[in-house]
Amino acid sequence: MEHQDLQAALAKSQQELERAQEQIAELEALLAELPGIFERKFSQRLEPILERQRLLSADNERLQQSSQREEPLVLPLQPAQPRMGSRVRALWPQNQDPSVAA
């Protein structure tokens, strides 16, 4: 009986060993894929940054060329700032009802 128990334990241990070796092989395969995964992710994140850099370089070159030709730089129009007088008039309106002034 003892011999059969040892053989059963040995068979069980061999199966566990085979499963462990398969698992190790799977993990090693995943580990081998990691550099490629990181490289793809890095490239995906870097792509929009490189495009933005390309656009900024093109804008910079265009601005340098226009400044070398001494062309006026066209800036977007900004709304005029209200003068102080218009702020004062808003506080004391001219058409105020005399009955309210009292």
Rank of each mutant, 00 (worst) to 15 (best):
H3G: 01
L6R: 05
L6P: 00
A8M: 05
A8R: 05
K12H: 03
K12R: 11
Q15R: 10
L17V: 03
L17D: 06
A20H: 14
Q23W: 06
I24K: 12
A25G: 09
E26A: 14
L27C: 07
E28K: 12
A29R: 15
L30P: 02
L31Q: 14
L34S: 02
I37W: 06
F38Y: 14
R40Y: 04
K41C: 07
K41Q: 14
S43W: 07
Q44G: 09
Q44R: 15
L46C: 06
L46Q: 14
E47S: 13
E47W: 10
E47V: 09
P48V: 08
L50A: 05
L55V: 09
L55T: 08
L55C: 11
L55K: 15
L55I: 11
S57P: 01
A58R: 11
E61G: 00
E61V: 00
Q65F: 02
Q65N: 07
S66I: 04
S66A: 10
S67D: 09
S67L: 09
S67N: 09
Q68G: 06
R69C: 00
E70W: 09
E70I: 05
E70P: 02
E71D: 11
E71N: 04
P72L: 05
P72R: 07
V74A: 07
L75Y: 10
L75E: 11
P76S: 01
L77A: 11
Q78A: 08
P79E: 07
P82F: 04
P82G: 02
P82C: 06
R83F: 04
R83I: 04
M84W: 13
S86R: 15
V88M: 05
R89W: 11
A90D: 07
W92H: 10
W92V: 14
P93L: 11
P93T: 06
N95M: 12
N95H: 15
Q96M: 12
Q96G: 08
D97F: 11
P98K: 04
A102C: 12
